[in-house]
Nucleic acid binder design. Sequence first.
DNA 1: GTCCGGAAAG
DNA 2: CTTTCCGGAC
Length: 281
Amino acid sequence: MQPNQHEANRWIVDKIIEWYQAHKRDLPWRHTQDPYLIWLSEVILQQTRVKQGLPYYQRFVEAYPTVDSLAAAPDEAVMRLWQGLGYYSRARNMLATARYIVEQLGGEFPARYADLLKLKGIGKYTAAAIASFAFDEDVAVLDGNVYRVLARIFGIEEDIASPQAAKTFGSLAQALLPKGQAALYNQAMMEFGAVQCPPQKPLCLYCPIQQTCEAFRRSMQQELPVKKSKVKVRERFFYYAIFQSGEQIALRKRTGKDIWEGLYDFYLYETPTEASEEAVL
DNA sequence: GTCCGGAAAG
DNA sequence: CTTTCCGGAC
């Protein structure tokens, strides 16, 4: 890093925070420092867009305004409220954790990142979100938005799906965090990513940090962040029937959008799983 | 159809 | 390390 890099970084962070204060969306969980409500919102938002999660959050807060009320709720009632959100194990983990907090921790929400991390259904992201939003612990969140914003600003071409990237981006995000302003910084980074610097069509033309953005300078907004799409391997089972008449063997031209398009092969019977000889015949 | 995403499980 | 869980956007 250049000697003035620290200053440049501080400038970038200040600009993003300034942008956040002017453009942030008014969302209900931004008006509370209650760790329970922040946790609730984060679990819902983990797998859901704000627009879709909002009504669920409102219904949960209405039905279960405290960790005690959630802990006392019947399983079916919670699952019913969760219906439509998907990833149902998260609702189950949330309920189990609420009960654990009430029964084992005297209803006291853990206040530190390291302790939050031990709870069921709370991983690095959610632990950092609660620790910073509710308790202002100086721990940086790392979510898809943060990855994207950092990859673009600094022109980082590391594959964000790799575990190694978590270290690179994690230490960078942590280094950028202004001490004592974790909640503000984290929310600003994520909101900036969601609104100003989305995956498609980032709003570079009126971006406050355009002048220091590597992706903009190199016109790489669409290429960053780099995410190696996992080529999913599918097993296919081909059983060929060979029809022979004298010297001639029947072949068939392959059509349609598939492997070997336009090429010839024998008459084919395909199964998604391995089939026995009897089944094929 | 493809891609996306936190945490847990494998 | 990779895969799985779900529903929505496109």
